[in-house]
Design a protein around this nucleic acid. Structure first.
Lengths: 118, 118
DNA sequence: GCTCCAGATCGACAGCCATCTATATACGTA
DNA sequence: TACGTATATAGATGGCTGTCGATCTGGAGC
């Protein structure tokens, strides 16, 4: 993100009062913003947020066959949401026999949590 | 969210090993999930996340005319992103003379932050 | 009044997303 | 081997989203 620190008001303004303080926006923020936004976006759907909630409450591994009936959605749709979460790094999965078990990856959420509460 | 606590495995499974522990999912979670997801969704765009970042760094009021040149976007697009953030309750705005000043509403972010780090 | 400027809104458009049904894959059991 | 079951994938579709240029709004100053 190219930053222009010389954003001093080029326009007229009321009675000497400056438009605002100069804005500082270091270049290093952009990639971090993209990482954070990717996680936030994945959590930006109530179904996916609830999926993460359930997976966290059961702190470990819950099989998909228990997740599907919690929602009024088809199995492929739930599978799709799990995939979105997986691709965002928020959850991981492991296959045991016929069943697939999902678990929350705490690190992915940690960075967003830290930024939010900073 | 209607919950079926009797999700005991209806299917055959390997060697007595249960498919998974029973899933508990209280009804009260749904509305909260929708609130949280609304905030997360609004933050799920790098531009909006950076806007919030700038507004937080300048802890108070920054005029829009300083925000627009930070991004390689048209003024209407930045205005649109600010509107999304406003509708999610993440930022507020105040007009003084010609200029509009945006600020972060800490409460909106707080709930999401608390859930993430719980 | 008129003009200029900051910001918001409108309308259009391309790309993305949530959902479905249908099908494929992969594993267990008989 | 053949069959059933748990997930994943594919393809379609309607709706949402990010972006733009053009325009509207409303305040400041002449």
């Amino acid at each position: 993100m190219a930053v222009d620190l010389e954003l001093a008001p080029k326009h007229k303004r009321p009675a000497g009062e400056p438009c605002c303080e100069p804005v500082v926006y270091p270049d290093v923020e952009r990639l971090e913003a993209e990482r954070l936004a990717r996680v936030a976006k994945a959590l930006g759907d109530p179904i996916r947020l609830q999926l993460v909630d359930v997976l966290r409450k059961h702190a470990g591994k819950v099989c998909v066959c228990e997740l599907v009936p919690l929602f009024d959605l088809s199995q492929p749709t739930v599978s799709h949401h799990l995939k979105v979460l997986r691709e965002a790094g928020i959850v991981g999965s492991e296959r045991r026999g016929l069943w697939a078990y999902y678990y929350v990856n705490p690190d992915a959420v940690k960075e967003l949590s830290a930024w939010l509460s900073s």
